[in-house]
């Protein structure tokens, strides 16, 4: 089932185009990683999905509904966000009280369970929380109302590895449940290597590349070889060529073809999401 369907989305601000014809489809039960450099348009896309920002043109459907049906759509979405969006004057319990009043399907036991698990003091004001604690509170709210689509906007930015690992563990547990779909926007790509089923690379408001985990592992390859190979290479064999003193590094969308053609003249490894992003963006900008 199609959870999110974005078509030709355009959003511009006074001086810049944030999204320039973005189209994206996310199916139920998958984790999609949205990666790109700062200012790529990742946050704007998430804001448009939530109708926090209004697109100039294009269409967004969430659960088959127009995203502007705010009540129906948002009641099925959980939003994990940067730490700064919380009310510093309130405590975790009060934040839960507000969320409970808004969500029809709020589960107080689940929320209390997450507060305990994340070691969040219920009565301490949020302004005394660390950044990691604030993100964990945001996660607790997002996961306590049986959300079917969880949108995460740079959740692990600025967090230590332990908390990031914990975040990934929770996502893993949630995925085991039915109907959970994740869209995770991040520029910390190592997190996505572990969990993402799909990777979408966004840059300057456009989707540059979209691959599945299987495609990344089976078809794409990170190639290293001597510079002389580049002269022999056909168009499109190598993406985002980086020259160095030993030769070159590049991404290929067809590792088997490259292996057949160059044999042991080239070393081919499984690329990480970061490799994918770096080379795809280099290609785009060269």
């Amino acid at each position: 089932m199609n959870v999110l369907d974005v078509k030709n989305l355009v959003k511009s601000y006074k001086s810049s185009v944030a999204l320039d014809g973005v189209s994206l489809r996310i199916d139920e039960g998958f984790v999609t990683g949205l990666v790109g450099p700062n200012g790529a348009g990742k946050t704007t896309l998430i804001k448009c999905i939530l109708n926090l920002a209004q697109a100039d043109s294009g269409r967004i459907q969430v659960f088959g509904m127009d995203h502007r049906r705010e009540l129906e759509v948002r009641s099925r979405i959980g939003f994990v966000h940067e730490s700064s969006y919380m009310f510093d004057q309130l405590n975790a319990r009060e934040t839960g009280t507000i969320a409970r009043a808004a969500y029809g399907r709020w589960d107080e036991k689940t929320f209390a369970g997450y507060l305990e698990r994340f070691e969040l003091p219920e009565r301490a004001k949020i302004k005394t929380y660390s950044k990691g604690m604030k993100v964990r509170l945001s996660l607790a709210v997002a996961l306590s109302h049986e959300a079917e689509l969880i949108l995460m906007d740079e959740p692990s930015s600025g967090l230590d590895p332990l908390i990031r690992r914990e975040l990934l563990e929770v996502i893993g547990e949630e995925l085991a449940k039915e109907n959970r779909t994740f869209l995770i926007s991040t520029h910390i790509t190592s997190d996505l290597d572990r969990i993402a089923d799909h990777v979408v690379i966004l840059d300057r408001g456009q989707i540059r590349l979209a691959v599945t985990r299987d495609e990344l592992g089976d078809q794409y390859g990170l190639c290293r070889g001597g510079r002389e190979l580049l002269a022999m290479a056909t168009n499109g064999s190598f993406i985002g060529v980086q020259l160095n003193e030993f030769g070159f590094t590049a991404l290929t969308p067809d590792r088997e073809k490259i292996a057949r053609r160059y044999g042991d003249q080239v070393v081919i490894e499984r690329p990480t999401v970061e490799d994918l992003m770096v080379h795809a963006l280099k290609e785009e900008r060269s």
Binding site: E70, R74, Y85
Partner: peptide, 18 residues
Amino acid sequence: KLDVNDTPRFMFSLPISR
């Protein structure tokens, strides 16, 4: 005044209409 720190983004991620 509660709007400092972009808190409306949290509130309006909840099912609340404009």
